[in-house]
Design a protein around this nucleic acid. Sequence first.
DNA 1: CTCGTTGCAAAGGATTTGCACAAGT
DNA 2: ACTTGTGCAAATCCTTTGCAACGAG
Lengths: 154, 154
Amino acid sequence: MPHPHPSEDAPPLAERLRARGLRLTTQRQRVLAAVAALEHATPEAIATRLREEAGSAGAAPDTSTVYRNLELLERLGLVWHTHLGKGAPVYHAAEHPHLHVVCAGCGEISSADPALLDGAAERLAADLGFQLDVGHVALSGTCRACRERAGTES
Amino acid sequence: MPHPHPSEDAPPLAERLRARGLRLTTQRQRVLAAVAALEHATPEAIATRLREEAGSAGAAPDTSTVYRNLELLERLGLVWHTHLGKGAPVYHAAEHPHLHVVCAGCGEISSADPALLDGAAERLAADLGFQLDVGHVALSGTCRACRERAGTES
DNA sequence: CTCGTTGCAAAGGATTTGCACAAGT
DNA sequence: ACTTGTGCAAATCCTTTGCAACGAG
């Protein structure tokens, strides 16, 4: 049975923090909320989003805090990141895992069913004892639109 | 039919350049040679390598030239890059395609048979008209050693 | 009250870019 | 000669760090 997710159900941020003697802060809750709300967010995008929301409730966390908490949340298994293109990694909530499919031509990001890799995952496990982490995978290639465009030119 | 590689046989760098009205320079030949020689090379590693070889024949290309040519070579379809971890993208020659399998724990990089993704590639093509680029794919997860280590602790 | 946390500002590392000069055709 | 490519240095972009003030337990 695939789907080896570290999360149980709706993993309470608070519990995970307490278990490690860490603290539940407003910033952490906000960063996590932003990651969940935004689909494929870069640290910068998350910081911006928080800055926008800030108007209504207190101040937005500093960029460095966003980075620090993103890293922490990832260690806690609540968020995952993937490198899609050159510049920035994108984060997404660990719940509802999905594959990222990116077009090298236009940068479009789509999601795909993680089951797509079940076969590959099994073979890697059998051959190398390697446990594939579906949430981290990014598949690149060319989308239909870009393929057609390429065919038209040249 | 899988394996849709843009390369024919031993794609002459010179020909591809001429076809675009570009020039064959020593730097370009060296950068390409370095990528082919090093297996999973970061731009920095390539620059360093070239600096070492420089002793015997002329000067090494500047870092910016390495970046520019890496990008060019990729457009020409002679090299491919993949993002393995946080910091650095790695380049490899477009010939002999292979999947990169990276352990999130120890950073170990292994190669795997591209055929592993044939199934997924077909489904993506059928469902989204998306052409998967196997040479760019990096699969992350946890290697056997790290899994065991994790199991031991905690 | 006692640490973990955060904000700020500065430090760093990796790429990219502008330009004048050198090199390929 | 004409145009592209390169070296150099400065500019950017993305992230990380040091440290004093702040806040959660």
